[in-house]
Write a protein that binds this DNA or RNA. Structure first.
Lengths: 228, 228
DNA sequence: ACCTGAACACCGTTCAAGT
DNA sequence: ACCTGAACACCGTTCAAGT
């Protein structure tokens, strides 16, 4: 007999029929709606199921528990942010350090503010176990292209670019998240953008390795065509 | 009759007899023990009350709800961190920028790591509404002495030191919190300390105002006696 | 293959009854 | 003044019964 093991932590069945696929889609959509309209405190399996127009039992057929449900929303959101970073990293490849930093910071801040409602609603679950895992794995995925673009930079060199990249990603993410969650609005978008630019640039300038031959410092951004 | 209003959101009575004072102390202690031994997921009013050796009813006589209970632990922890910052700010008054930054970063990182267990356990509640409020008000309280020491710096000048200070506090706090909550240990204490030094120093160098007459740049730390 | 909803265990909070 | 603990409402999760 094939794998008679207990049904324990299996990530639940995948939808195979049409109606079940639409059930999953409805649950996804309902999750976001409940989050936006009621907030995480009222993010209840019964409430989400009701909003999706299905029974709780159906919900548990596709999501093993409440955390997995919220994790789905988190993952979608973080994947969007990852996409922005990856795209901008391709665009700014080979440019000067300041251009790279400004371009990336601006893109990320803009993207985050476009999703400010959902970002706010996700603040609490992001700190829970499952959410923190998603955050960490996304940070690792973002650090890769960022490390690459740092290495491609035409006017600076770094030792251990990957570690620098990871720290920048974590630092900027947590800063933006805290700023967005702050209901007193101590930092608006423009102020945060300006300070994040200075913080990342200042950090990288502090950390850059002595220039080797072949890279020219303090020059015009070399005429390297951006990738594709 | 004096204030016949409803008993709604009153922060509960203060202990006036000896036994009730000890009940509050026991609840405080039990909260920390439950948090450390069972984690926030199992931080239950019934569990805390049982651990403290009192009934749930007693708990609700002094804490209006579960959030207020965890908030008490959060506040104590953040107050300790605030104390460290205030003390170090007094010690490093008038020193050079790099000395100030290194001294403060080192002190804060060391203090946080001495409380790493409770810091980890508090990661989730820190993101909840009540916790975020505590974090924000503590950040404001920390920014004040930090702004002052930045203004006292003997080899750099800043416009709007308070805003810089607030952003540094928020940035460093959230970075440390994320690093500590990370169970995969991507950043150990020493690495984080080194990077935080560079990040804060780089940021401030990027943000410093042009030197006015009267402050000397790139000098030995002027022989200014630290306060008291 | 998928859906339903009653049922169970557990938790936050209250309140009448005690000392 | 303070404590107790049963009671209530609500939530996460399961599972026998359906189509």
């Amino acid at each position: 007999m094939p794998t008679p093991g207990p049904t324990q932590i299996r990530p639940r069945k995948q939808p195979v029929q049409a109606r079940s696929a639409s059930t999953v889609a409805a649950l996804h959509e309902a999750s976001i709606q409940v989050l936006l309209s009621a907030g995480y405190r009222k993010f209840t399996t019964t409430r989400v199921a009701a909003r999706a127009g299905v029974s709780v039992g159906s919900l548990y057929q596709y999501f093993p528990n409440r955390e997995a449900l919220i994790a789905a929303v988190i993952e979608r959101h973080l994947d969007e942010m990852l996409g922005i970073v990856e795209q901008r990293c391709r665009e700014f490849r080979g440019r000067a350090l300041q251009e790279i930093v400004y371009g990336l910071v601006d893109a990320v801040v803009a993207a985050k503010w476009e999703r400010i409602e959902i970002s706010r609603a996700l603040h609490e679950p992001l700190a829970e176990v499952r959410g923190a895992e998603c955050v960490h794995s996304t940070a690792l995925k973002m650090a890769a292209p960022l490390a690459e673009i740092l290495d491609s930079c035409c006017d600076a060199t770094f030792d251990d670019a990957h570690r620098l990249a990871l720290l920048i990603v974590i630092s900027c993410s947590s800063l933006m998240q805290t700023a967005i969650a702050d209901t007193t609005d101590s930092f608006d978008k423009e102020i945060l953008r300006a300070h994040m630019r200075a913080m990342v640039l200042g950090y990288l300038r502090e950390m850059r390795a002595p220039m080797p031959a072949g890279k020219t410092s303090s020059q015009m951004p070399a005429n390297v065509a951006p990738l594709r």
